[in-house]
Every structure is written in C-alpha cells, then in structure tokens.
C-alpha cells in the first residue's frame, strides 16, 4: 500500500509540472496574488512557532513549502 502511494505521488509530480504551461496569468493580472496574504507562507514567524511545537510533539516534521506567490514583478 505504502509503495503504491509513493509511486502515485512521484508520478503526479511531472504531470503537474508539464500541465503548468497552460496555467497562469498575465503579468498585469497579478493584483490578487500580489497581496501579502496570498503568499504561500504569509506569516513566517507564526509558521515557525507552529513548526517548533509540532516538531517536538510529533514524529514527522519538515517537508513543507517555502514562500511563493507575490507580485512576480519583473
């Protein structure tokens, strides 16, 4: 079972990457995404405090994202 999940997960990756070219917006359509709230990690400090708690209370940690989004200006 576990192996199947791994394989499905790894297969999904290239599909998502290749499917990307049709997605997206024009540079001048990034008004919503430019909002600070739309950053994938909009509150880094709060996230780091959460991660610290969960890290010390659970067996899994990390693997999460890094910032992303923003105005994508120039």
């Amino acid at each position: 079972m576990r192996r199947i999940i791994h394989i499905v997960g790894l297969l999904a990756l290239p599909i998502i990457v290749s499917g990307c070219s049709d997605l997206g917006v024009k540079p001048w359509e990034r008004d919503v995404l430019a909002q600070q709230e739309m950053n994938l990690i909009s509150d880094p400090l709060e996230s780091s405090l959460d991660d610290h708690i969960y890290f010390s209370k659970e067996a899994s940690s990390g693997g999460k994202g890094f910032g992303g989004g923003g105005c994508g200006c120039n």
């Binding site: 997605l23 995404l33 994938l40 890094f66």
Partner: peptide
Amino acid sequence: VFGVTQVINRSTIMQFNY
C-alpha cells in the same frame, strides 16, 4: 526539497513539494 509553485489563475496559487 524540490518544489513547484504554480499560479493557477488570478486568485489561486499552488505548491507541490517532494
């Protein structure tokens, strides 16, 4: 970490990491 961040549309953004 290898990650892909993708803008889906004007109001949606997605990230996928391994």
